[in-house]
Design a protein around this nucleic acid. Structure first.
Length: 491
RNA sequence: CGGGGUGUAGCGCAGCCCGGUUAGCGCACCUGCUUUGGGAGCAGGGGGUCGUGAGUUCGAAUCUCACCACCCCGACCA
């Protein structure tokens, strides 16, 4: 065994790290807290980008690009925003290096100090709203619906590949609207896009809800999020959509004249998902054998592996394999024919399982005699022999079935691990033993929320949008509550 | 920033207590032959500033001191 993945039950976080590294998604870099996203991992990100980008375009958005650097003065204009991000900002103070006089290498040239320090963006609201001020005069200039694909930096103390790194890739949407209602509508529209993407592409069920004040984005009026449950019973916030009200418009003095000739502040939203989604994808579906990728996001759908004893056999098999590859490609599938002679079939089987390629198609001498192929599906690891005739339809159908099955498996898991309780002792036991989501009553105060966090490590992930109104008593204080909220330990 | 741990070949480790030839093992790598339907076998081969610096000593991977880096556990976070 060349590559062993740590047992998932024994040490979940080691299992995750192993998987990310051994499946060639990413590796730690020599820069503290930063990762190298390797080609295979990056191609998953490209699949995500392609799907999301289309969804954004289909809902009327266009892409643009704003600077990496933000002048410190911009950054400090929105009070809550600074407060939230100040502790994790990288700051550029100089613009030149020089050779050290003692020959010990290169040092900062103290004469090249910046007049005003530049913050490396931890998010772009400030630079964007500073820019929007110049773009907006009239209601005719609205709405502005812009997205950008970018890297950002948040100086983290402890990092984990994909889940939390100092630099990461994401998209951030920033929209400007003439009315409050329109901005709110935009916030929900994007939340739905995210939920749709998570469920239909990532095959990962999510809960939609609004964050408590405590978990709200710095500078937002309301933060909405999609929350997913990972296989270790912890929740992962997978996307956020913020209704910013007029906070940034006021901070950056962005006003417009409405239809009645009245000067108003602009209404805003911002929203984002990041490469963290790759971490979510890994933790939601994968197993002891490696990654399990939903077909919609798999960089390669089918790998064809020849099994042969000599070159004569290989050439017969290759001819078949190339034909099948073309049939599948014509169906829009990405197919790899791995005819390398440097690795044995068994090695390749294990390798592609580790990488989560949805379907493996093997052709050997027996298949040549019988006009068959062997298909193995990654989600269930089942193998079955099919006639070569019509194989492209079988594979296409199988991939659809797998996409649905992977989602269903994740949904079953979530349902099995979502509890309702009105008893705080039970609440504590659930959190301690197995984790998962708990729906419980809460009195609505930050104090209670923090005390529950202290005592159980669980936080309020969100207040579900579709939660039914129900009279009850706060699980901690017994004070009256009108609805249950979603608790979990979180990443 | 607190508490704990680890730095020896690309990776994972042994050796260190108790200093002494040429620093060793597994995986990976290279060559050859046999193999190929679940991570092949045999034979041969290459690869090391023992984290860095200073000290003790006839002699340091091994002992002492300092520094650096990384990992795990906490506080902070998408």
């Amino acid at each position: 065994m060349a590559k062993e993945v740590t047992n998932k039950e024994e040490n979940y976080s080691q299992w995750y790290n192993d998987l990310v590294v051994k499946a060639d998604l990413a590796e730690p870099s020599s820069v503290r807290g930063c990762m190298v996203i390797k080609p295979y991992g990056y191609s998953i990100w490209e699949k995500m980008q392609a799907a999301l980008d289309k969804m954004f375009k289909d809902t009327g958005h266009t892409n643009a690009y704003f600077p990496l650097f933000i002048p410190k003065s911009f950054f400090s204009k929105e009070a809550k925003h600074v407060e939230g991000f100040a502790k994790e900002c990288a700051v550029v103070t100089h613009y030149r290096l020089k050779n050290a006089e003692d020959g010990s290498g290169v040092v900062i040239d103290k004469d090249a100090e910046l007049e005003e320090e530049l913050i490396i963006r931890p998010t772009s609201e400030t630079i964007i709203w500073n820019t929007y001020r110049n773009w907006i005069q009239s209601y005719r200039d609205l709405p502005i619906l812009i997205n950008q694909w970018a890297n950002i930096v948040r100086w983290e103390m402890r990092t984990r590949l994909f889940l939390r790194t100092t630099e990461f890739l994401w998209q951030e949407g920033h929209t400007a609207h003439a009315t409050r209602d329109e901005a709110i509508e935009e916030t929900f529209k994007i939340l739905d896009v995210y939920a749709d993407f998570a469920q239909n592409y990532m095959a990962m069920p999510v809960m939609k809800g609004v964050k408590t004040e405590n978990e709200r984005f710095a500078g937002a009026v309301d933060t909405y999020a999609i929350e997913a449950l990972m296989q270790d019973g912890k929740a992962l916030q997978s996307g956020t959509s913020h209704f910013l009200g007029q906070n940034f418009a006021k901070a950056f003095d962005v006003t417009f004249t409405d239809k009645n000739g009245k000067l108003e502040h602009v209404w805003a939203t911002s929203w984002g998902v990041s490469t963290r989604l790759i971490g979510a994808l890994v933790m939601a579906h994968s197993d002891e054998h490696g990654l399990v990728l939903p077909p919609e996001l798999a960089p390669v759908h089918v790998v064809i592996i020849p099994i042969y004893k000599n070159n004569d056999q290989l050439s017969v098999i290759s001819e078949k394999a190339e034909k099948i590859k073309k049939l599948l490609s014509d169906k829009g599938l990405t197919v790899k024919y791995d005819n390398r002679d440097t690795h044995k079939p068994g090695w390749k089987f294990a390798e592609y399982e580790l990488k989560g390629i949805p379907v493996r198609l093997a052709i050997g001498p027996n298949d040549i005699d019988n006009n068959t192929v062997e298909l193995a599906r990654r989600d269930t690891l089942q193998k079955q022999t099919y006639p070569q005739e019509g194989i492209e339809k079988v594979v296409a159908k199988l991939l659809d079935e797998m996409q649905a099955n992977i989602f269903k498996k994740a949904l079953d898991f979530r349902e099995k691990n979502t509890y309702r309780t009105d008893d705080y002792e039970e609440f504590k036991h659930i959190m301690e033993d197995k984790g998962g989501f708990i729906l419980a009553h809460w009195d609505g105060t930050e104090k209670t929320e923090l005390r529950i966090k202290d005592e159980t490590m669980a936080t309020i992930r969100c207040i579900l949008l579709d939660s039914e109104q129900e009279e009850g008593k706060c699980i901690l204080t017994g004070k009256p509550s009108k609805q249950r909220v979603l608790f979990a330990k979180a990443y």
